[in-house]
Nucleic acid binder design. Structure first.
Lengths: 246, 246
DNA sequence: AAATCGGCTTGACAAGCATCAAATAGAAAG
DNA sequence: CTTTCTATTTGATGCTTGTCAAGCCGATTT
């Protein structure tokens, strides 16, 4: 854990390091852009912001003005229904864009909470739209990012609608592993930034069930868990579990 | 049921009746556009297409080229996973846009199947993108439509992750009712175009459970079901059921 | 009118997960 | 170092929903 001094939650910090030089550029908004459009994106994304663990990037009900790209760290998004129901709708790691769900009603429908000390790039949406009007490949890329979110939400729907607890957790671990790999980290060893309860909320399970399935996986030598530290020992078998109840 | 003659599945029919005169325009893509942008949309959306019951608007794996607005009728979209799992990801009525999930990989990830004889407007996506570059309010509206899809998928995630069978079905009926109302139909009396199995697939339940809950609702005088014909008798109580397990 | 077929209903039973409860482990605070 | 607190693990039990099976209803065909 880093040891930053306390920072007021809304402290906007203009840091250096442009999109064009960001080492996440191939995962994030700039992916595959021509030089010229990349330069313009650099001009657009000037504000960066730190979030200490537990702080919000935005809250449900906040007016929608910007998208937020995770520059470093880890976030969860949390939907709070009228009827008081509360569910984690996603976990977001470096290079991923949050806030697309706010466009539809000009308000953020969910909370975005940092699960570790993190950094965000703030992308003013109206200005991004302006820019995409002159930058076709950026436009297409924005649409792909939105579409990808739809696809990934639908695959969570599939998971919640048709998988049993073991399959859900296997799919979850494989998904994390794959995203870690895409970021150059080990595919088989990482820290879970979220609690068992948050995993359960995301997967439609109770925390006890998450814990039990982890233990079962450990007994079968599929993984090694110790608190938040996870080692994945047998990816092929996990894959088999996911594809089981076809 | 209408009694059209058999029509080849891919028969493209250029019908008249432009977006600007469509009585669904306030629900669909043209919603809230200035005159000029509306005219351009009319020029873009020239191809309309009939789908007989059971026919596909598009299939999983088809190259993505167009969005499809439902002009009349009723569709389901169906995701077929690598591992053979099959799930209904949505039901789509007049004025709703299908195919946004295809942008991300340039292929449609799911099937879209007509559940009754239907008509579609074909919206070539590259040309739509071109047009939105010159039409800011159309651009914003497209983004809102995509964002709305994300929001609605997330509320299905919430439903699947945290509601019990009765709550899911109550929420489902209320959602249908509300969409019927928005289209000028009765909020309390309509035909279900889908089978119990399709409802179950969408809601993460087995068809027997769907049937049992309908029967229970009927016994409690919340609804009157007879096959596909539904009358909703007590909307407030259904709302209470949805908000129960907060 | 009888037969056939797909979709629906209902019952009996079992499996999976939730709930409740208690114990343990680690981290943070005193 | 001890205390406190939160997150996690594990066990016992029960509810909800799935599974299997049989019968029914309505539409269409013969």
């Amino acid at each position: 854990m880093t040891e930053l001094k306390a920072v007021p939650e809304l402290d906007h910090v203009a840091l250096r390091s442009a999109c064009s030089k960001c080492n996440l550029r191939e995962l994030c908004l700039p992916s595959g852009l021509p030089e010229e459009e990349l330069d313009q994106l650099d001009k657009l994304i000037r504000v960066r912001r730190s979030c200490r663990k537990g702080e919000h990037a935005y809250r449900a009900g906040d007016p929608f003005e910007s998208l937020y790209a995770v520059r470093a760290g880890f976030f969860k998004t949390n939907l709070l229904n009228e009827d008081g129901r509360d569910q984690v709708t996603g976990f977001h790691m470096a290079g991923e864009v949050m806030g697309l769900d706010g466009i539809s009603a000009d308000r953020h429908p969910c909370d975005a909470v940092a699960l570790e000390d993190s950094e965000l790039c703030v992308i003013p949406f109206s200005r991004l739209e302006e820019l995409t009007r002159e930058a076709p490949s950026l436009q297409r890329h924005l649409h792909k990012i939105m579409s990808r979110e739809i696809v990934s939400d639908q695959s969570v729907m599939m998971l919640l609608g048709s998988m049993r607890a073991e399959e859900r957790l296997a799919a979850f671990l494989l998904n994390l592993s794959q995203r870690m790999t895409a970021r150059g980290y080990s595919p088989s060893e990482f820290y879970l930034r979220m609690t068992r309860e948050e995993i359960g909320s995301y997967l439609g399970l109770k925390l006890e069930t998450v814990s039990r399935v982890f233990s079962r996986f450990q007994n079968e030598a599929l993984i090694a868990v110790q608190q938040k530290h996870i080692r994945i020992l047998d990816i092929p078998k996990l894959r088999k579990i996911v594809g089981q109840n076809c």
